[in-house]
Every structure is written in structure tokens, then in C-alpha cells.
Design a protein around this nucleic acid. Structure first.
Length: 299
DNA sequence: AAGTGGGTCGCCCTCTGCTGGTTCAGA
DNA sequence: ATCTGAACCAGCAGAGGGCGACCCACTT
């Protein structure tokens, strides 16, 4: 309800209800209620910005814009304070938008899917996922992206020489993206309540990285030891064939002369030597004593 | 009537962080 | 040859900063 002690103010107020816009912009034919509004509008055409900032080179059409600019850039005065957290903003609309992050309100519904956003920009940006629009192009390889940030990261990682690196605080690993470092820490350096057992011995760990480091110590170890002699080897398959020395087992039989062998390889060598007519043993000569060998392995 | 200050709506931008598919080296 | 898993990568959403344009009430 508008009240005023002055008749002029009352008349002025009443004009706001008439929608009477008599001031015409001769450049775009738009009409305005007051001369001031028209003048401000014409200034947007001409580029006239009478309100200049004393602390930087910015200039504005209206005094209100200047005040707001000064709050953002120079005074940092933030009159709109959130009652639920420490957030404060220069503009009421920003506070309104921020409050939605507390209430969960999402007034902007996508017409193509169930997504709803808290502000118009996010909905507009989301709509690109339906339209396939990719307005941002890499100036080097011309790859296209739907968001500027994605393009920026791409350019930095693919085409920049001094790209930032992220050192893991727990190990020597260096990872190019901060978010990937977080994944690395989560997967390898986070305490696990469940025991992580070494696949080669009885050791147990509660952190994956420690387990992996420990398992590496087994790498050159001859873990497979013969129960009957001092023989040891790195792989189980070698032990299987070694054990046949003690058991006398010879599972590979030559079909030409019925001779039996412990290893498939031994049978192969036998067959080529005694039954394969096309086989010509290669002669490998020692570079130092000129002695000849029929097999490279003996050399 | 003109000027001023506060307010609203809308647009665009950046920074940030998570997610899931792909690649590649080592087992 | 195959499997596994860590790092790489693009996609996409959340949050907030900054400005343009305009409107309105009040004061001068």
C-alpha cells in the first residue's frame, strides 16, 4: 500500500500503475516511462558511461552499477548474509541462489529428463547434453567441448609444456590431475579395516600401497623350493617339471621310438635330432675359443 | 522533472570435484 | 594371451563472482 504526504509523489506513484511509456528511443523504438530511464538506455547504445570507478578503469551507465562494482572489486562489502552459514553476498539474488543449496530447492526443470537445477545457467548448460552442442574448440587440435572448463583442462594437459603436477603426500607418485590424486589416495592410502593379505607370504596389511610395496620384495625371490633337494625357482611351472626328477615320472612319449621324457621340450629336441630329416643342427661358435655348439643355450 | 540508491532478472564466466570409460604396463 | 588395476581423460554438475539492463521509490 503506497502512502505519501506529498501530492507530487502520489501522482508519480500512480503513473507506475498506468504502464504509460511515452519516452521513445529513436535508435531501437523501445519506450520508457521516464527521461532518466530513456537516457540510461540510450547510453547503452552510445557507450556513454558517466559513472567512473576511482580505483580502476571501469565505468558504468548508472550509479547503482558503479556501487555494485565497487563492492565486488574494492570494498568487498557484502550486505546480504546467509542465516544458515557464513556466506554473504553483494547482491540479494546471489543470496537467494545460495540459500537453495541449503533448502535443496531446484526450480528449473529440464523438459527432456528428470534433471532439475538450482539456477537457470546450470539448466542451460545441462541442455547441451541433450542437444550435443559443443561451443568450445581447442585452438591447437580443434577438439570440441561442451564446457569451457573441460576445454581448458584438455589444453593444459595435452598442449601445455609446464603443466602442473600433483605429488602424492604419502608416496613418490606424481599425478597430473588433482581429482585423480584424490582417487589415488582413496584407493591406495586409505586405511582398510579388512586385512589385505600378501599373495606370496603370510604378511597382512591395512593399506593397499603398503601391500603392493611388500609384494614387490618377492619379485626376484625364488619362492618355489623343492622339498627333496636344494633346487628353487621363481615359477610354479618350473617346479612341476623339476619334481619329476624325484618321482621318475616321464609323461612325454616319442611316437616314433616310444622313448619317454620329463619335459615336452626334451621330447621336441629328441624328435628333431633323431626323426626329423629336415633338421640341420645350427652351429654356434664361441667368439673366444672357436669351439662349436649345436644349441644356442649351451653356448 | 531529474537525480539517486536500492533492487531484480538474466547472462556468462571460472573454479572445483566426482564419475565412468579407456589405456597401458605389469603380473 | 589374458587379466588386473592404476593413471589418464572427457563429461558433467555444484557453487559462486561479476556485470548488463532495467525498474521503482524516494529525494532534491
Amino acid at each position: 500500500m503506497f502512502t505519501s504526504s506529498r501530492m507530487s509523489s502520489f501522482h508519480h506513484h500512480m503513473k507506475t500503475h498506468t504502464n504509460e511509456k511515452t519516452h521513445l528511443c529513436h535508435l531501437c523504438l523501445k519506450t520508457f516511462r521516464t527521461v532518466t530511464l530513456l537516457r540510461n538506455h540510450v547510453n547503452t547504445h552510445t557507450g556513454t558511461r558517466p559513472y567512473k570507478c576511482s580505483d580502476c578503469s571501469m565505468a558504468f551507465v548508472t550509479s547503482g552499477e558503479l556501487v555494485r562494482h565497487r563492492r565486488y572489486k574494492h570494498t568487498h562489502e557484502k550486505p546480504f548474509k546467509c542465516s544458515m552459514c557464513k556466506y554473504a553476498s553483494v547482491e540479494a539474488s546471489k543470496l537467494k541462489r545460495h540459500v537453495r543449496s541449503h533448502t535443496g530447492e531446484r526450480p528449473f526443470q529440464c523438459c527432456e529428463c528428470s534433471y532439475a537445477s538450482r539456477d537457470t545457467y546450470k539448466l542451460k548448460r545441462h541442455m547441451r547434453t541433450h542437444s550435443g552442442e559443443k561451443p568450445y574448440e581447442c585452438h591447437v587440435c580443434h577438439a570440441r567441448f561442451s564446457q569451457s572448463g573441460t576445454m581448458k583442462t584438455h589444453t593444459q594437459q595435452k598442449h601445455s609444456e609446464d603443466l602442473p603436477k600433483h605429488q602424492c603426500p604419502h608416496c613418490a607418485t606424481i599425478i597430473t590431475r588433482k581429482s585423480d590424486l584424490r582417487v589415488h589416495i582413496r584407493n591406495l592410502h586409505t586405511y582398510s579395516a579388512a586385512e589385505l593379505k600378501c599373495r606370496y607370504c603370510s604378511a597382512v596389511f591395512h593399506e593397499r600401497y603398503a601391500l603392493i610395496q611388500h609384494q614387490k620384495t618377492h619379485k626376484n625371490e625364488k619362492r618355489f623350493k623343492c622339498e627333496h633337494c636344494s633346487y628353487a625357482c621363481k615359477q610354479a611351472r618350473y617346479m612341476t617339471s623339476h619334481i619329476r626328477i624325484h618321482t621318475g615320472e616321464k609323461p612325454f612319449t616319442c611316437l616314433s621310438c616310444n622313448k619317454c621324457f620329463r619335459q615336452k621340450q626334451l621330447l621336441k629336441v629328441h624328435f628333431r635330432k633323431y626323426h626329423d630329416a629336415s633338421f640341420i643342427p645350427a652351429v654356434y661358435k664361441c667368439t673366444k675359443c672357436d669351439k662349436g655348439f649345436s644349441r644356442w643355450v649351451l653356448y
